[in-house]
Each structure stands twice: as structure tokens, then as C-alpha cells.
Design a protein around this nucleic acid. Structure first.
Lengths: 328, 328
DNA sequence: CTGAAAGCGCTAACAC
DNA sequence: GTGTTAGCGCTTTCAG
């Protein structure tokens, strides 16, 4: 690869001048500018990004840390982020943390060594303290970290209430909830939403809440037990789509008809939800937009632009599938 | 962040010595080595990866270029690659090409500017010529590029034959094929496998092959038409799982029972296949292993190790679900 | 065994 | 307007 020196020689100017036209900084005569441009074209010169990074202490690179890219929610987020980043000449590094703090920290270490400009992270283990000491711009997605850290997600409480209300509007009388992991704020909020909505009507019964842990097999198990114990349950709000699919399977295995005997609604709106048979009714998050917004916020942070709002809770929408009855 | 100079001062040695202990290169007295190590610990020093890259002309970074990370096949590949890469202190850059040559080339441009050490790519547009001029180590995944470029995938022809044979073994007499895009070698090979297997028994009939383009909606349409025209079709081999799901939907929509009236088998073995109702029977690729192997090969390439085999076609396995009948 | 110094390719003062 | 030069932080000859 050619260097700025080669260009300078070819154009018969100094490297400083070449640098100036490269960065359109400082004054440079139109004619010499042309000479330089010609030389660049002739030599097919491309500036060396690493040398530039060394000087500027920034790399035009950002990182995305997710628990596991294999989880269907994240690829769409990643795609959105990569879309806005590549349009701004940024490069995206992908990291899988498996929800382990140790791995997250290790990634941060590398990020600093590589002058990575910022990171978008989905985490429930990292605290503001960890992050502060890294001194690297951060945006949180899906899981809240701190008031000072831009956060993009949805209103889980309201989404959950919406789910419950919809089940009721289709005639469900006894609505159970398969919740996600205890330590996940997300899952907790969805549970709270479920509870609130039912408590308001004096219908809440904690026996109807079981933990599926966002896990397929576990969910199948606990759902079967629940339905055997309470055969009159006629609606289930699952903490996410993945579990909703599992719930449907469990119900069918027990000989229940969905939605005639049992209605099921999920949360997330991953593509999977529309591929199953029957298609899952769900509270859909605007997943792509979440990633998009997060990327924009990070860019603002990097550019030192003021952030007017730190908390971005985008709107969920009801996506009606075939696991719920027609509204009455 | 501290620099090597700080460490040198703290340890009262030269930067050269520090560099030597950092890289365990050259001779360095055990005592001074200890002094340096102490200084490093005391200052919590981490070498600057960018400065190192500038000198070494390599970045401990590799790139993965896929058509779209949102396609359920790729996250698992990405995960595998990231696993081996991060274990070797490499960082993974993620790129979405949307199968556009222009985007691929743009990514390569950036890779060179950033001294990216190698790339793993899924492409059907890039030719050896493009790649050669980039002079950057490459491994092809899922889609073959050239004999000189390490390639990891499965034997699509054999996999397809296996699919057809299995349908026959469960009693299917009239087997149709919903194929993938014409310009995709993959899809072509699967079609060839299907044809070969049937031709051997003089059962091939080109009227039973339609193009679903790896697209959900298209597949639903063409499948319905096909089944209306040939109501006696009792088995369908779909070119991938995604289309298989669509085929099942189409069949059910026409009032056919799966698998009683119509058996369906897919190809790929993405997780999705086991989440649908009924679960899709499929020819499963060892997706994670494919990514893993590709990563290992790229590392060898980067390290200048000799590659003994360029063509890696891993074994597919039959994954029996509920869209096919019991074997007789 | 260790240090001085050149240089990786680029940018930004600072002169002229 | 343009050139000279001192770094950015690191590695590696080359002396000693």
C-alpha cells in the first residue's frame, strides 16, 4: 500500500499539504489541490486508518456487546446498528458476553487498547462504576444501567398491561403468566405490568405466575404443571415470544386447543413469532428502531453532542396472530 | 492510559527492555524482568494495540462478511467464529453485504485501511480476481469461491439425495422440490441432488420443481399453485428450512394434513426448525462447526501455516421432526 | 544483556 | 499557501 509520502512525491508537494487536502483542513491552493488529487488517483492511494488512529486516539470503530448473537432478538438490533454505523464510515465489532461480567470486562479492556470509540451494550451485570472507569461512551439497549447512560428499549410495564388487557378483551377470565428470570429487570417489569393490570380488577393470583426463565425446555415443563393444576386457565401471557412458542407446544401436548381452550400472547415480536403454527400473538417491540436509535445516540455521544433525553422507551405494538381469539 | 515510556521510567530501564519483556523477545535479565513486571502491575499498564498495529501491519482483528445477519443461519456461524477468535485474542468485525458486490468491495477497502488480518465471507458475487488484488487472507463459508480459497460447507448434493431417500423410505411416491434462487450454487446443488436421486429411479419430473427463491411469501404462493395442480404430491423437499416452514403453512392452508397427506423435509437445521408446529424434519448442517472450522482455517492462513485441505464439506445429519411419517 | 535511535503513516503546530 | 518537524506508542535493528 502507498503512503502519504508517495503521494507527496508524486504531486511534488509536502506531506502536510497532502494531509490538508485529505482532511480538507487549512488553506490549500486550488491548483495544488488538483495536483494532489491527481496523484492520489494515480497511485490509488488510501490513507492508513491505523496511523490516523494512533494520532487521533480514535478508530472509527464501535463495539456491540450482546449476551449471545444467537438469541433471535439481537441479530436485528445488530443489523440496525451496523446500518447506521457503516453509513457513517464506522466499523462494528461484535462481542458475545454470555451475560458474564468477566467477559464484558475483558472486552472493555480490548476496546480501550484498540481505541474503540464507543460501545452499545446489553447487560445486567455491569454497573455505572465499572463503566465510568473505562471512560468510553456507552449506550444501553434493552436493559437499563443508569440515569446517566443513554438507554433504549420499550416500556415493559405498559407492554405487559397491554398484553393482559388484550387477552381480557378477547374473553379470557383466568390469565396466567410465565415470567422470565428473577434477576432480569425486563422480566421483572413485565411481571409487574401483568400484576398491576390484574390487581386493579382484583384478579391477581400469585399461584398463576411461574418462572420459565426465558428457557424453552423449562417453560414447557412449568407450563404443563401449571395447566394441570389449574385446568381452567384460559389465557397465558408469556414473558417473551420464545416462551410463548413453548407454551403453545405444551398446551397442544396436553390436548388443549389454541386459542379455543387457551389463548397465548408473547412479548418481543421476533420474526420467529410469525413463522410458527399457529402464529403467535405478541406485543411487538420495534427491534430495528431500537438498534437504530441506540446507534444514533452513541454517535452523538462520540461527537460530543448534548444528549437531551437519556431514556428512550419506544412504542410497542400489538401484533395479532392466531393464538388468541377474535376480539368480542 | 499509560505508555511504555511510563513503565520504562518507573522500572528505570529503557523502553526497549520493556518491549522485550512485553513480547518475551530477546534476552532480558531475570531481575530486570521482575522490575519491569512490577512497574507494569503498579501502573496498570496495557500496551496500545493501535501503535503495535501500525508497526506490525496487523491488527488482531478479522472480519466476517455475511449477506444479512438477520438470516437465522448466520448468527450461529458468527457465534462460532467469535468464540474461536476471542479465545485467540482476536476481535471480530461484522459486515452485512446484502449480497451486493459493491458493499463487499467497500468493506474490503476499509479492511485494508485498518490492517484487518483476514476475512471470512459468504458470497456469491466475489470472484478470485477481486480477492487476489486485496491480498488479504480469506476463507469462504457456505458458498464456494475458488479452489485456492479454503471453503467450509456441506455436501449439498449428497444432503439433498439423503432428503429424497428419506421421504421415499417413509413411503412417499411423488416428491416435489421447492428450490432456491437460480444464481445460488447451493440451491442449484440441492436441486441437482434431488434430480439425481429421482432420475436413478426414473421418477424425475421437472413439473414438480418450482422456485421459492428462499423467500417466505413466494414459497407460500408457488407451493399452493403446485399442490393444486398436482394434488397427488405426497412429499416435498424444500431447499431450506425457512421455505419448509412456508410449505407446511401452505399445505395446512389448503386443508392438507402434515405428514398424513403430505410429508415435508427441509435443509439447514436452523433452530427455528424445531420451534414450529409441527417440528420440521430436516437435513441439518453442523452450523456451529462450520463457523468453527472456518475460523481455524483463517487463523492458519494468517499464521502462514500450510493448508492441507482447501475443501471442507462437513457431514449433514438427518433431523427427524413431525413433518414426515414414521419410517416403514 | 541493555540502551539509543530509527521508523511504522499520519496530523498539527509552527515557521516562512 | 506551503513546508518542516515533532510527536502518537510501539518494535527492532544495531551498538556496546
Amino acid at each position: 500500500m502507498r503512503t502519504i509520502k508517495d503521494v507527496a512525491q508524486e504531486a511534488e508537494v509536502s506531506v502536510a499539504t497532502v494531509s490538508r487536502v485529505l482532511n480538507s483542513s487549512g488553506y490549500v491552493n486550488e491548483d495544488t489541490r488538483k495536483k494532489v488529487l491527481d496523484a492520489i488517483k494515480k497511485l490509488d492511494y488510501r490513507p492508513n486508518a491505523v496511523a490516523r488512529s494512533l494520532f487521533k486516539k480514535q478508530s472509527k470503530t464501535i463495539a456491540l456487546i450482546v449476551p449471545n448473537i444467537t438469541n433471535p432478538f439481537f441479530p436485528e438490533v445488530a443489523r440496525a446498528i451496523e446500518d447506521v454505523m457503516s453509513s457513517k464510515e464506522y466499523t462494528l465489532i461484535l462481542c458475545n458476553s454470555d451475560d458474564q461480567e468477566e467477559k464484558e470486562n475483558k472486552y472493555f479492556e480490548v476496546m480501550k487498547q484498540k481505541y474503540v470509540d464507543g460501545v452499545i451494550i446489553v447487560t445486567s451485570t455491569l454497573t455505572p462504576k465499572h463503566i465510568e472507569k473505562n471512560g468510553i461512551p456507552i449506550v444501553a439497549v434493552d436493559r437499563f444501567i443508569d440515569k446517566d447512560i443513554p438507554y433504549v428499549s420499550v416500556d415493559n410495564v405498559e407492554g405487559a398491561r397491554k398484553a393482559v388487557r388484550y387477552l381480557q378483551s378477547t374473553g379470557c377470565q383466568k390469565i396466567a403468566h410465565i415470567r422470565g428470570p428473577e434477576n432480569l429487570l425486563n422480566a421483572e417489569q413485565r411481571f409487574q405490568g401483568y400484576r398491576l393490570e390484574l390487581q386493579n380488577k382484583h384478579l391477581f393470583n400469585e399461584d398463576l405466575v411461574v418462572n420459565g426463565n426465558f428457557n424453552f425446555t423449562t417453560t414447557t415443563e412449568v407450563t404443563k404443571q401449571l395447566l394441570k393444576k389449574h385446568p381452567d386457565i384460559d389465557g397465558i401471557f408469556a414473558g417473551n415470544d420464545y416462551m410463548a412458542v413453548s407454551v403453545v407446544k405444551a398446551a397442544l401436548a396436553l390436548g388443549k386447543r389454541v386459542p379455543e381452550d387457551l389463548s397465548v400472547i408473547g412479548f418481543d415480536g421476533i420474526n420467529l413469532a410469525k413463522l410458527t403454527n399457529p402464529e403467535i400473538t405478541t406485543i411487538a417491540q420495534p427491534i430495528y428502531q431500537i438498534g437504530y436509535k441506540a446507534a444514533e445516540l452513541l454517535l452523538d455521544l462520540i461527537d460530543g453532542k448534548p444528549i437531551d433525553t437519556y431514556n428512550h422507551e419506544l412504542k410497542v405494538t400489538l401484533s395479532v396472530g392466531q393464538t388468541t381469539k377474535q376480539m368480542r
